[in-house]
């Protein structure tokens, strides 16, 4: 039976989860991928660039959503761009590992409870999962219309100048399906699969 997670997610819910558990996530979350993570890190975490334009307003708007919340690595196909009656047409996860340089710091900074993506992440993120605490949730890559179906409503969008795939979309989801592949206890399904496949590869190339 899948575990239901409601945003904001209590710490205790996170600590109860283990690698392999299936979950259904409900509540308000944002999408954020390459451009957003770099923007967050440069502007607010490392502060190597000065906020400009609407940076501070966007920051103020997403901070409460992310506190105890979830960021989704996703560059959706969005309908209704001309009328601003936005709807998600296709919204599967993108490959998460590209955010590895930023993710741990972003999780700490915003007090995230979950990161949704695909392909898994590495040591820095796994450590942040233990410290914050949080989990990495794996959605099915390419399952775009299926996941779009769990997006009940597009509540708004920030940083549309990053482009549709890279913008911050604020979405309300119900029963978003995912699998815990990195938990708050230091376990990663991806590490295990990598080690096992390495052993087989060594044998095949012996």
């Amino acid at each position: 039976m899948p575990t239901t997670l409601t945003i904001p997610i209590p710490e205790s819910d996170i600590r109860r989860l283990n690698v392999g558990d299936t979950v259904l996530v409900s509540g308000t979350m944002i999408t954020g991928r390459d451009a957003v993570h770099k923007w967050m890190a440069d502007t607010f975490i490392n502060q190597t660039r000065t906020p400009s334009g609407d940076d501070l307003e966007v920051y103020a708007a997403i901070k409460p959503i992310l506190d105890g919340g979830v960021i989704y690595h996703c560059g959706p196909v969005v309908g209704g761009l001309d009328t601003r009656q936005y709807r998600f047409v296709a919204a599967g996860p993108t490959t998460s590992i590209r955010e590895e340089p930023y993710q741990g710091a972003v999780m700490h900074h915003f007090n995230l409870r979950g990161v949704i993506g695909k392909g898994g992440m590495a040591a820095k993120t796994l450590q942040a999962c233990q410290e914050v605490p949080a989990v990495y949730l794996h959605a099915i890559g390419g399952a775009a219309p299926l996941i779009a179906g769990s997006v009940q409503k597009v509540l708004g969008v920030y940083k549309l100048e990053f482009g549709v795939p890279e913008a911050i979309w604020v979405i309300e989801v119900k029963d978003f399906p995912a699998v815990v592949t990195m938990d708050a206890h230091g376990n990663s399904l991806h590490d295990g699969v990598r080690q096992q496949s390495r052993a087989v590869l060594d044998r095949l190339l012996a």
């Binding site: 560059g75 959706p76 196909v77 047409v89 599967g92 890559g141 390419g142 775009a144 219309p145 795939p165």
Partner: peptide, 8 residues
Amino acid sequence: NSTPICQD
């Protein structure tokens, strides 16, 4: 539904 199989 005639929607993209994958968003990418």
